[in-house]
Lab assay of single mutants.
Amino acid sequence: RPFRVCDHKRTIRKGLTAATRQELLAKALETLLLNGVLTLVLEEDGTAVDSEDFFQLLEDDTCLMVLQSGQSWS
């Protein structure tokens, strides 16, 4: 499924495809050149996407933000 993913400053944006939350996090880690533990949130309001069940309910092309440890949505 297609998703739009950005870093916490919204300066890097990438289109990625993934079937699972874990797959998307792995691709974001590599594509956005990030490291460490990542958190996935909705870009629009910062809602945490912390379960596979919730991830599977997201629509195609949902905009997501990837946060590294110590970063927060704004």
Rank of each mutant, 00 (worst) to 15 (best):
R1G: 01
P2H: 15
P2F: 15
P2K: 15
P2M: 15
F3M: 14
F3V: 03
R4F: 15
R4W: 05
R4M: 05
V5F: 04
V5N: 01
V5L: 12
V5H: 00
V5C: 04
V5M: 08
C6W: 04
C6S: 06
C6N: 01
C6M: 13
C6V: 13
D7C: 02
D7K: 02
D7F: 00
D7Y: 01
D7G: 06
D7A: 02
H8N: 10
H8S: 14
H8Y: 10
H8P: 06
K9L: 09
K9A: 08
K9D: 07
K9Q: 09
K9V: 05
K9G: 08
K9P: 03
R10Q: 02
R10A: 04
R10N: 05
R10Y: 02
R10L: 03
R10T: 01
T11N: 11
T11S: 15
I12N: 09
I12M: 15
I12S: 10
I12T: 13
R13C: 12
R13E: 10
R13L: 13
R13D: 05
R13P: 06
R13V: 14
R13S: 13
K14T: 13
K14N: 06
K14Q: 09
K14I: 13
K14P: 04
G15V: 14
G15T: 14
G15D: 12
G15E: 09
L16S: 03
L16I: 12
L16C: 09
L16P: 02
L16N: 04
L16G: 00
L16H: 00
T17I: 08
T17F: 10
T17G: 05
T17W: 09
T17M: 15
T17Q: 07
A18Q: 01
A18K: 03
A18R: 04
A18T: 03
A19Q: 10
A19N: 09
A19H: 11
T20I: 04
T20Q: 01
T20G: 05
T20M: 03
T20E: 01
T20H: 07
Q22D: 09
Q22I: 10
Q22S: 14
Q22W: 05
Q22K: 09
Q22V: 10
E23P: 01
E23Y: 00
E23S: 05
E23Q: 09
E23K: 02
L24M: 06
L24Q: 02
L24S: 03
L24C: 10
L24H: 02
L25H: 07
L25E: 06
L25T: 08
A26K: 10
A26T: 14
A26I: 10
A26L: 13
A26F: 11
K27T: 09
K27Q: 10
A28S: 13
A28L: 05
A28C: 10
A28K: 00
A28I: 13
A28P: 01
L29Y: 11
L29I: 14
L29G: 15
L29H: 11
L29K: 11
L29C: 10
L29M: 15
E30L: 05
E30K: 14
E30N: 13
E30S: 15
E30T: 11
E30H: 11
T31H: 12
T31G: 14
T31P: 11
T31R: 10
L32Q: 04
L33K: 14
L33V: 12
L33H: 15
L33D: 12
L33W: 14
L33G: 15
L33P: 13
L33S: 14
L34W: 10
L34E: 06
L34C: 14
N35G: 07
N35D: 14
N35I: 09
N35S: 12
N35P: 12
N35W: 05
N35A: 12
N35T: 11
N35Q: 13
G36L: 00
G36T: 07
G36F: 03
G36Y: 01
G36H: 08
G36D: 15
V37A: 11
V37W: 08
V37D: 13
V37E: 15
V37R: 11
V37Y: 10
V37G: 12
V37I: 09
V37L: 08
V37N: 15
L38S: 10
L38T: 09
L38R: 02
L38P: 15
L38H: 14
T39G: 08
T39P: 07
T39Q: 14
T39V: 07
T39F: 06
L40F: 06
L40M: 13
L40N: 04
L40H: 00
L40R: 03
L40V: 12
L40K: 03
L40A: 10
L40T: 07
V41T: 06
V41Q: 02
V41I: 06
V41H: 05
V41P: 00
V41Y: 03
V41A: 10
L42C: 10
L42R: 15
L42E: 04
L42V: 12
L42H: 08
E43F: 00
E43A: 03
E43K: 00
E43G: 01
E43H: 01
E43M: 03
E44C: 10
E44H: 15
E44N: 09
E44T: 12
E44R: 07
E44F: 05
E44P: 07
D45Y: 03
D45A: 04
D45F: 04
D45P: 06
D45L: 05
D45M: 04
D45Q: 05
D45I: 03
D45V: 03
D45H: 04
D45G: 02
G46Q: 08
G46K: 02
G46E: 00
G46C: 01
T47H: 07
T47N: 06
T47I: 06
T47D: 03
T47W: 03
T47A: 09
T47P: 02
A48E: 11
A48D: 06
A48L: 12
A48R: 10
V49L: 03
V49M: 04
V49D: 15
V49T: 01
V49I: 13
V49S: 01
V49N: 04
D50L: 06
D50V: 06
S51L: 01
S51A: 07
S51C: 08
S51V: 04
S51E: 09
S51K: 08
S51F: 04
S51I: 02
E52V: 04
E52W: 02
E52P: 02
E52Y: 00
D53L: 07
D53P: 07
D53A: 08
D53N: 08
D53W: 06
D53Y: 06
D53C: 07
D53V: 06
D53F: 04
D53I: 06
F54I: 12
F54D: 12
F55P: 06
F55Q: 01
F55K: 00
F55R: 05
F55W: 05
F55L: 06
F55E: 01
Q56Y: 07
Q56V: 07
Q56F: 04
Q56I: 07
Q56K: 11
Q56S: 13
Q56N: 15
L57Q: 14
L57W: 07
L57N: 13
L57Y: 11
L57R: 13
L57E: 13
L58C: 04
L58H: 00
L58I: 11
L58T: 04
L58K: 02
L58S: 04
L58M: 08
L58V: 09
E59A: 11
E59T: 13
E59M: 08
E59K: 13
E59R: 12
D60E: 11
D60R: 11
D60P: 10
D61I: 00
D61T: 04
D61N: 15
D61Q: 10
D61P: 02
D61R: 07
D61V: 03
D61L: 01
D61C: 05
T62H: 03
T62Y: 00
T62L: 03
T62A: 15
T62V: 14
T62I: 07
C63V: 13
C63R: 10
C63S: 12
C63Q: 10
C63F: 08
L64K: 00
L64D: 03
L64S: 06
M65L: 01
M65Y: 01
V66M: 03
V66A: 07
V66N: 01
V66F: 03
L67M: 05
L67Y: 00
L67D: 02
L67R: 06
L67V: 03
L67E: 00
L67K: 00
L67G: 00
L67C: 08
L67T: 02
L67Q: 03
Q68N: 07
Q68D: 06
Q68L: 06
Q68Y: 02
Q68I: 04
Q68H: 06
Q68A: 10
Q68R: 05
S69P: 15
S69M: 09
S69A: 15
S69T: 11
S69G: 12
S69Y: 11
G70D: 15
G70W: 05
G70E: 10
G70T: 07
G70K: 07
G70H: 09
Q71M: 06
Q71E: 14
Q71T: 06
Q71C: 05
Q71A: 04
Q71P: 00
Q71W: 00
S72D: 06
S72F: 10
S72W: 06
S72Y: 10
S72V: 12
S72G: 08
S72P: 08
W73I: 04
W73F: 08
W73Q: 05
W73L: 03
W73V: 00
S74Y: 13
S74L: 06
S74M: 10
S74Q: 13
S74P: 05
